[in-house]
Design a protein around this nucleic acid. Sequence first.
DNA 1: AACAATACCGTACATCGTACGGAGAGCCTA
DNA 2: TAGGCTCTCCGTACGATGTACGGTATTGTT
Lengths: 259, 259
Amino acid sequence: MTKKPEDKHYGGRGDPARSMALLWREAEPPARGRGPRPALDVDRIVAAAIEIADAEGLAALSMRKVAERLGVGTMSLYTYVPAKAELIDVMYDTVCGEVAPEWAPGWRERLELIARAYLENYRRHPWLLAVMANSRPPLGPNGIANYDNDLRAIEGIGLSDLEMDSVVTMLYVYVQGAAHTAIEAAGSERSTGVSDQEWWEAYAPLLEKVFDPEKYPTAARVGAKAGETYQSAYDPEHGFRFGLARLLDGVEAMIGAGR
Amino acid sequence: MTKKPEDKHYGGRGDPARSMALLWREAEPPARGRGPRPALDVDRIVAAAIEIADAEGLAALSMRKVAERLGVGTMSLYTYVPAKAELIDVMYDTVCGEVAPEWAPGWRERLELIARAYLENYRRHPWLLAVMANSRPPLGPNGIANYDNDLRAIEGIGLSDLEMDSVVTMLYVYVQGAAHTAIEAAGSERSTGVSDQEWWEAYAPLLEKVFDPEKYPTAARVGAKAGETYQSAYDPEHGFRFGLARLLDGVEAMIGAGR
DNA sequence: AACAATACCGTACATCGTACGGAGAGCCTA
DNA sequence: TAGGCTCTCCGTACGATGTACGGTATTGTT
């Protein structure tokens, strides 16, 4: 990882022009065909990278692994992709293309379907969360298409343009928080080989020795109740639905008040 | 990074007993004093690690840097801390101790102050977000104290124990999402040396060449309005307040309905 | 004075992203 | 057909990383 302070990095990503060209797949000079025939293309590289990141996590995604999976030398990738950062940008926009929520008659149902679609996408691609950027996002075609679609879901229900943007962004923010928790809950078992129950069985007796229920009676009482209800410290599905319902109730209140 | 599949990792962390002993500062055998006098202690190591992570980010936090800052050899740290994962757990609980929201007369104001206190803590320690775990958290003293405090903020307002847990967890989830966005917005400028304005100036003309406003009129109209209002793609402070207000309106609706 | 227990830490290994420059392949021009 | 130009491919090398291992220095106890 070489750092040159003199050249600017745009959003942790690479050179804007190269990045955009990659995202929108503008084959810059159409490579009129002087050298050897290209054995690869960006899409194949991105697909391989996504497979690795899905299966082993972002930390395990290395250029060497991508190259190995494609049967080429590591450095060959750099013919198609300027650096790992840009590769990740393209991965980002590519999986954004998988978000395809159904359309429902009411705005509330539409937002629920949209939130659910994003959540499922984060579940499918847990690494996506670590890469998400709401300010300065990779400006790829799929991300923009989603933004437009999400706005149209609440168009004409009595919100100003600014309020529409606020509601959609709020939904993004909430779903990202919920997804982070859900993924972490689901992922820790798979990646550690320790089930929720095993984990709790290992920690509970240790906690009992140091935790004083008399000092924190509320935490003890509520925590116990939640634990026995969910059979775990936390139920991501319930948490997601509960929070989303409160959020949409809040939007409904706003529409009602503004009328 | 050595991986041994045979030994289990609890939550990406280390051995539960050693981890808890560290978190609750149980000096195991009180080191009755045979060898040389310890030149360090866990707190000094944790403080140095937090300073580095605050200033340079989690990715730049290395055992070598911590040791260097303390003027000792790298491997000396392993006398006090079993591994980097446990060190991070202790860092986590330590900065949880900095969350100290004021108390207000009404539950709504209390939740606002709590949410704000967490947000500020995430801002102070941006690495904390990447380390946050709502299921299987490091069970340290400060984290538990916060949970108790947050529950008491909404005790007696007409919610069941289970609902109290849901509301508090929902608040955690939302604040984490909002903090992620706020930090990313604030951090990308500092870490890349590119201001929001520079970033937009670099990307806008490139986007114009590939983005068709006629295909996505809603996104074009609303995006433009939001951009000119916030003088940027996104205003984290406004986003945080807007979403929190909707969320608390939702809680209010729930209390009102249950009465 | 000898021993035991502890702290300190130098070295080594496998991993990472990628800069650099050479080798070879294929089309274009002469 | 020959020469050259442009492109793909990729081997090597560098400076990072976490930490296992084992040696050495320091101290309290006997």
